[in-house]
Design a protein around this nucleic acid. Structure first.
Length: 986
RNA sequence: GCGAGGGUAGCCAAGCGGUCAACGGCGGCGGACUCAAGAUCCGCUCCCGUAGGGGUUCGUGGGUUCGAUUCCCUCCCCUCGCACCA
């Protein structure tokens, strides 16, 4: 009966689907499927004891594309745990749903409808969507449905995931929306939602907010908050202007020239300003003040919720030569022209801090060099040449003007030198972390920038000297071709920085089983820096904001407590959506007393919710810790009682394909159904769970998957041999007991590992490590003996149960053939005390040691011995060992003790040497091992193994006692030490 | 920069104070079986070695210890997250 995974797996899938094997209902709430199942389930069939409810979840898939092998692991990890807990006797619920909220699916559909080549290629080539099906994908839910049904669901079924399919839903379902509506109404009522302004990426062409996915250029661009330093027009210019007849720009000192910087602390180092003389600037009334900024900037301010009216526009050249006053120092500075000014960046009026900015240093040098040319703008060249850098901080390792040092050190020779960028980066960094402000900064003097920047900024902001704006550092373009700017929009926020709320979450984190443990700190850290979260969007699939249906609740905000929805999702058919109002859910989650007139149906559902909740384990991904998983904790902490808070979260690593990141757009993915077709589902599962622990990254390498498949096939063939051989009887020899002892150890190791989600360790022990034991056993034992056959059957049965969570198809099939029942229907193994035997394990390792030593000698001497003589150490040596064990591994003390004995004293140096060796021997072993060893009759062990060794080396094997007057041609016998026999080959 | 994780033999990867030249897998080499190939089984796979031995190793440089791959510190390098994106 050869291994045919396709056929075998198809049968089991069929069987599971037909019997509703994984449909889980609360004990006591029986349906027919549950009855039938329990009747066939030995572990929980007759005894009355209720099973523990275990609830495992995994983030519902987002079907904006197909499923790949990385997803396969994500969903198989909880499946393995679910299967394990079922064998442990638990009632286990593992449900799944579909997340369609937000814009990615809509975006994908749009791109498809536009006929974008890249999108078509992903659909056609990566995900094998048939040409005539493409049309069905042209609506968002049509698109989602396709991937749900043809990819995810199919992949999950093929993998053998033990999902209760009755409970699936999408987040666009009417009833689900009712549930989310309840959630947000409740949060609003509790004051955890807040309305406010928030910066978003905004397409100026489409006139709407856009997501990262919508961007053509600048996908990685992040907007920054610039500080605006509000320089004011100087009186002097007004006078001068009226004197010489040119149009005065600054009629009075109320006109403001906002200059943007990311380093507000440099305000005291500004020596001059730059404008682009050829660009267009504007005089605008901004929030009631008169501002001079670039024309582009007026649009930005308008988008950023400021009240802007442009009074007039003019050339930048008109600003050149004017003077403005520093709002902090009161100093006047000169505006000069520069071609490097980008008017589309921030305000288009640039301040210059030559002492601390290599860019500005170089620019000033160049400005001075061409000062004479500036007369054409009416600028006095001497005034330009008189501009001196002004230092505002001190930093170790630099002179008065750090920018000059940086420029010199990096050998920057012009404004276009690439080294300038490097010099700037380095200096900005160092100044930020090490620079100390000079005395003029008063309360901030002597402080390191890093510590006071925010405070300093707030200080001047409150005085009206500073303001702020958002802008990108690079150009950002929408897929529609439109310019993307930062806009401030009215939005609703979840107040994740609310102190009382955060406190509760921190408590939830404390009590959480965070796997691996190192993630706990990441949760705490996230809670610490999390601010308000804008929880709505202007468009997308999902639930409308209950009190303003212009907005949709965004994906990370409608997926925080949906695990509770699984508990009732399959029983809502008879509840009309309109009945699912606030009272309904209050009753469901808070009980009959929570409302005046509790809905009977809700009360009934409440029992099931209560039965399954809390979530025992959520298996998720590392990169979701800082948002989804923390939000999940937030909402549970607020909306549910502490007993219903999540018990555990397992964070998973990501997947690589042949050492590289997977990418569906490049077609660099492996689809589960292709992999399953090629290798079988058991192989795919086993590879995914065995090649690394869940939280580590894994690497799908085809040749290793292939070799995993070979290993499983070999396992299958051996198992079939055992199953088909006569049963044998329990008539055990030492080597059988040795194998059974190893089996108990394995059961223990595997169980411990499973409890900690260590799927790699567990499957390694159950499979590979035990294969090593079997390898040895096959060499050592006579496999035709009835006792051996009994042993091999026992071992196989236990291992199949241990492996059933990993390779359920094969393990169930083989177990059923062996015992008449599938492995999943019998209990998880426990160590059998009768077979635990440290002594037999220790003895066997002596045999392994001797085998290895003899082989070493054979190799080194390149001989083929006819006779192998083993000499077991003399009794007195054993006595010395006992002394070392008694006294402890201390050379001096042991010698003192040993020298009391006249006989030993006579042996002199030999004893000293022996004690030295035995001291390290003892030091390297724990007490239990030593105790086990001291019970062993070493000579008997070798005598029993003599036949085996003779077979291995095709030689005669003689065992002697060193002190029994042995045949000793080369005088080797005296080399014997306890547990290390002397060896002679001839 | 901040937070987290990691750097182990040709590759992947375990070990996390002594039993470690370091589990296991892949690849490579040799042998058995076979007409042959595949599969399977056995052995070898840092260097040296005609007796089970010796030498040098676990990113770098220090330190703690009788003893460190394992603990502490320095530095270098890599990966992930840092938000309104699922």
């Amino acid at each position: 009966m050869s291994y045919d995974p396709q056929e075998l797996e198809a049968e089991w899938r069929e069987r599971w689907a037909e019997s509703g094997r994984y449909e889980a209902d609360p004990d006591g709430r029986d349906d027919e499927a549950g009855e039938a199942r329990r009747a066939s389930n030995r572990s929980s069939g007759d005894d009355e004891e209720p099973r523990d409810a275990t609830f495992v979840t995994v983030p519902y898939p987002y079907p904006s594309g197909g499923m790949h092998i990385g997803h396969a692991r994500t969903y198989t990890v909880p499946d393995v745990y679910a299967r394990y807990r079922r064998q442990q006797g638990d009632n286990v619920l593992f449900p799944i749903g579909w997340h369609v909220t937000g814009t990615p699916i809509i975006g994908a559909v749009e791109r498809l409808k536009k006929g974008e080549e890249e999108q078509l290629s992903v659909l056609r080539d990566t995900y094998n969507v048939p040409e005539d099906t493409l049309e069905e994908l042209e609506t968002p839910m049509g698109f989602a449905r396709h991937f749900i049904e043809n990819h995810y669901k199919q992949g999950m079924r093929q993998l053998g995931l033990s999902i209760d399919w009755r409970r699936e839903f999408t987040t666009n379902d009417e009833r689900y929306s009712k549930f989310i509506t309840w959630q947000y109404e409740t949060l609003k009522e509790r004051g955890l939602l807040e309305k406010g302004l928030h910066p978003v990426n905004y397409c100026t062409n489409e006139e709407q907010p856009v997501t990262t996915h919508d961007l053509l250029e600048g996908e990685d661009a992040e907007y920054q908050e610039y500080t605006l330093i509000k320089f004011r027009a100087s009186q002097r210019d007004a006078e001068r202007a009226s004197g010489d007849g040119t149009e005065p720009r600054a009629e009075d000192d109320g006109t403001i020239y906002p200059m943007a910087t990311l380093r507000p602390e440099t305000v005291r180092g500004v020596t001059n300003a730059y404008v682009d003389p050829d660009a267009t600037y504007a005089r605008a009334i901004v929030d009631g003040e008169e501002w001079i900024v670039s024309e582009e900037a007026t649009e930005k301010f308008d988008l950023q919720a400021r009240d802007v009216s442009v009074e007039e526009t003019f050339e930048g050249a008109e600003l050149v030569g004017e003077h403005v006053t520093n709002p902090v120092t009161g100093e006047e500075i000169l505006i000069i022209p520069a071609d490097f000014v980008d008017t589309d960046n921030a305000t288009g009026v640039v301040m210059s801090v030559p002492a601390h900015s290599p860019d500005d240093w170089v620019a000033l040098e160049e400005a001075k060099a061409r000062a004479d040319d500036l007369t054409e703008y009416g600028v006095d060249p001497d005034e330009v040449r008189a501009i001196e850098p002004r230092a505002i901080l001190t930093i170790e390792g630099y002179g008065e003007f750090p920018a000059r040092d940086a420029v010199e050190e990096h050998g920057v020779d012009s404004a276009n030198d690439p080294a300038l960028e490097e010099a700037t980066q380095e200096l900005y960094n160092r100044e930020f972390h090490q620079g100390e402000l000079i005395e003029e900064y008063g309360e901030f003097a002597g402080e390191v920038i890093e510590d006071v920047r925010d405070e300093l900024k707030a200080h001047y902001q409150s005085q009206g000297a500073f303001d702020s704006m958002y802008d990108f550092a690079e150009e950002v373009v929408c897929r529609c071709g439109g310019d993307v700017e930062v806009s401030e929009q009215e939005t609703w926020f979840l107040r994740y920085n609310d102190e009382a709320w955060s406190e509760k979450v921190l408590r939830a984190i404390e009590n959480l089983d965070a796997i691996p443990e190192t993630t706990r700190e990441q949760y705490t850290h996230t809670v610490d820096w999390l601010e308000e979260w804008p929880c709505i969007r202007n468009y997308g699939l999902g639930t409308r904001l209950p009190w303003d249906d212009e907005f949709v609740i965004e994906p990370l905000s409608d997926s925080t407590i949906y695990m509770s929805y699984y508990t009732i999702a399959h029983r809502l058919e008879d509840v009309p959506p309109e009945a699912m109002d606030k009272d309904f859910f209050d009753t469901l989650f808070y009980g009959a007393d929570a409302v005046d007139n509790p809905d009977e149906r809700a009360l009934e559902l409440r029992e099931e919710w209560d039965y399954w909740y809390p979530v025992d384990y959520r298996c998720s991904a590392n990169d979701l810790i800082s948002n989804h998983l923390t939000f999940f904790l937030y909402h549970h902490a607020e909306l549910f009682e502490e007993e219903q808070w999540p018990q555990g979260i397992t964070s998973m690593g990501m997947g690589l394909l042949e050492g590289e990141k997977m990418s569906s757009s490049k077609g660099h993915v492996v689809l589960p159904d292709e992999a399953i077709e090629e290798y079988g589902a058991d192989t795919v599962r086993f590879f995914l769970l065995n090649s690394s622990e869940p939280w580590q990254d894994f690497d799908w390498r085809a040749d290793e998957v292939g070799s995993t498949r070979d290993q499983l096939e070999r396992f299958w063939n051996r198992a079939i041999d055992v199953i088909e051989a006569p049963e044998g009887e329990r008539d055990l020899e030492t080597i059988d007991r040795w194998l059974l002892a190893q089996l108990q150890e394995t059961v223990r190791d595997v169980t411990d590992a499973m409890e900690r989600f260590e799927t790699r360790t567990a499957s390694q022990h159950a499979f590979y490590r035990f294969e090593e034991h079997l390898k040895w056993y096959r060499r050592r034992a006579d496999l035709d003996r009835p006792g051996s056959r009994w042993t091999l059957r026992t071992v196989l049965e236990t291992r199949l149960r241990l492996l059933a969570p990993f390779i359920p198809f094969m393990a169930n099939e083989l177990h059923e053939r062996l015992t008449g029942e599938p492995a999943e229907d019998v209990p998880w193994p426990e160590p059998v005390p009768e077979f635990e035997d440290r002594a037999v394990v220790a003895q066997e390792s002596l045999v392994e040691d001797v085998l290895e030593d003899v082989r070493d000698i054979v190799d080194v001497t390149d001989t083929d011995p006819e006779t192998i003589r083993l000499y077991v150490a003399a009794d007195w040596k054993r006595d010395v060992l006992d002394t070392v064990i008694d006294v402890g591994p201390n050379q001096g003390q042991v010698m003192g003790e040993v020298m009391q004995n006249d006989e030993l004293r006579e042996k002199g140096d030999a004893v000293n040497q022996l004690v030295g060796d035995l001291v390290s021997f003892v030091r390297e072993r724990d007490d239990e091992t030593l105790a086990t060893l001291s019970e062993i009759d070493e000579r008997a062990v070798y005598e029993e193994a003599a036949d085996f060794l003779a077979r291995e080396f095709d030689a005669d094997v003689e065992v002697y006692a060193e002190d029994g007057d042995p045949v000793d041609p080369d005088g080797k016998a005296s080399q014997a030490q306890p547990f290390r026999p002397a060896i002679h080959l001839e």
